[in-house]
């Protein structure tokens, strides 16, 4: 996917930058969020474009992209499954769930970070606390939140993804 900035996106970015009159650099994170929302991930071209917008060096922006796990440098699948791995969910069986999903899509459950299935439909990611310890294990499928996700329940959820 090539990086083409639409006029409306650029206007949105300029508006965001205007919130930080003292130091444009402070707008870095906002711009990264907006970019990922617009393009689905943050490409090299996007990093360089943001750096130019903020009068920074690309390394300054790249540091942030690699620091925050929520930023992606590769496109994700159509459905992104986020499995919580923090303590309560870990005790509640989230590793089993994560393993199950990874195996199903031919991914390595021990690999760091987000992985995407060959057909580009699903991405699986182990994340930190999703703030529902009482209903562990929990999972998100894009913006929808699911509680007490057993392997069977996961299959049900996946069926709804088309």
């Amino acid at each position: 996917m090539s990086f083409t900035v639409t006029a409306s996106f650029e206007a949105e970015i300029d508006e965001l930058i205007s919130h930080y009159p003292v130091n444009k650099r402070s707008a870095s994170l906002m711009l990264l969020h907006a970019t990922q929302e617009e393009f689905g991930y943050i490409s090299k071209e996007a990093i360089e474009w943001i750096a130019k917008k903020l009068e920074l060096q690309p390394i300054n922006v790249y540091e942030l992209v690699t620091f925050y796990p929520m930023f992606r440098q590769e496109p994700a699948g159509k459905y992104v499954l986020k499995v919580c791995r923090t303590l309560s969910c870990a005790l509640g069986g989230s590793h089993k769930l994560h393993d199950h999903l990874c195996t199903k899509f031919g991914m390595d459950p021990h690999k760091h970070g987000l992985q995407t299935s060959k057909d580009g439909k699903f991405s699986v990611e182990f994340v930190e606390c999703l703030a529902s310890c009482g209903t562990a294990p929990v999972m998100m499928c894009n913006d929808d939140f699911y509680e007490g996700v057993s392997n069977d329940k996961a299959e049900e959820i996946l069926k709804k993804c088309s």
Binding site: I47, Q57, P58, I59, N60, Y62, E63, T66, F67, P69
Partner: peptide, 16 residues
């Protein structure tokens, strides 16, 4: 030209 990329114990000095 230089920065720290990645996080925690994976922190690494790098160029863009």
């Amino acid at each position: 030209k230089l920065g720290i990329v990645n996080r925690g114990s994976y922190n690494t000095i790098a160029t863009y």
